[in-house]
Design a protein around this nucleic acid. Structure first.
Length: 103
DNA sequence: AGTATGACATAGC
DNA sequence: AGCTATGCCATAC
């Protein structure tokens, strides 16, 4: 299993209506120091990986998100039931996924 | 094989 | 509270 696949596996574990930070994915993948690599893996993530559920530690997506940037990202998460703060960020306090909090 | 780069994170100023 | 600088680790050239 390559590094990317491990990170993708972690991303795939993110339930709908939940988000996870790059550092957290890296941590789940067994590489707590490879937060950058986690993001880089998302860049190369296949279709079956919900990369839109992956945000930075502030609940903000990178400025280089695939098609329409942050706009598409926001719509996708709202569509899944994720609420956004007036700051334009995801409410990490309520939607940051943690292994075990599937409810 | 070495250098440069990057969808991040943390600490300092 | 927001920006700059440094660290980390894997990929690309």
């Amino acid at each position: 299993m390559n590094t990317f696949e491990r990170i993708w596996a972690a991303a795939r574990q993110i339930p709908p209506g939940r988000v996870a930070s790059y550092g957290q994915l890296a941590r789940m993948a067994g590489m707590p120091r490879s937060a950058r690599v986690a993001g880089y893996a998302m860049h190369a993530a296949p279709e079956d990986v919900p990369c839109h559920r992956v945000v930075d530690r502030l609940g903000r997506l990178s400025d280089a998100f695939s098609p329409s940037g942050r706009d598409t990202h926001r719509l996708l998460l709202e569509m899944e039931g994720v609420d956004f703060l007036p700051d334009g960020r995801v409410d990490m306090a309520r939607f940051q996924w943690t292994a075990g909090s599937s409810s």
